[in-house]
Design a protein around this nucleic acid. Sequence first.
DNA 1: CAGAATCCACTCCGATACTG
DNA 2: CAGTATCGGAGTGGATTCTG
Lengths: 128, 128
Amino acid sequence: MTGAEENPACPVSEVLDRVAGKWAIGILIAAAKGPVRFSELERGVTGISRRMLTLNLRKLEREGLLVRTVYPTVPPKVEYTCTDMALELCETLLGLVDWAKRHGADIAQAHAAYDAAQEARPSVTAAL
Amino acid sequence: MTGAEENPACPVSEVLDRVAGKWAIGILIAAAKGPVRFSELERGVTGISRRMLTLNLRKLEREGLLVRTVYPTVPPKVEYTCTDMALELCETLLGLVDWAKRHGADIAQAHAAYDAAQEARPSVTAAL
DNA sequence: CAGAATCCACTCCGATACTG
DNA sequence: CAGTATCGGAGTGGATTCTG
């Protein structure tokens, strides 16, 4: 056991929180393939709003995971690139994605089974 | 409902969202070591409230990541155990924790540098 | 001990509109 | 194109109280 993730003072939990966001994984993986433009991300990361994309981009840049490069051209062009640190992280993240792919069906099934069990069990708050 | 589950392009995102919660990682890792009781988790997962622990426990159980075992003893005893699927996931999660440990300092530094750069940059909204 | 229920504060997030 | 500003609803999460 590491014990570090249970330490209130340890930065691990804090760091993990930043990466654990709803969109961070998708953004990082998209950026891992190479420099990506804002609008490419907007299209690539399914379901994200412009606001959330901007917010997450800033956050990741602040964490030192992304580098923001502005090209002062007439149509503004901004590229986001993963840092080495982020590329390393992406390796792990890809493992997470792989796990999700392999067990997606299992999870869906467990889901259904659990819900069915709950529905069968009479409870005051079950009817929702 | 996020609507992610009706998106055929990203069944992975949906699954990832469930694991991406603030507490899920800590809980799973704690449970990976063996059967854990409710109050052990309450103490082990630093900073979690009873409410959030319960909520996350239910969610993880529903995902098929944890098995809840109730012992009908006089002082109620409940144990949570990782499923095989969850143990597999924990391997990856541990990799995440490891990454966070290795780069915690880098991130803190990037943080400080970014904030300093923002403070130095005169802006209408910079004054905080 | 393990949880359920309720209240309330805070934050997240999307939609929209505006800027350089 | 790549943002920023603002609003309001929805969800998150803590503290507290009550139960078997």
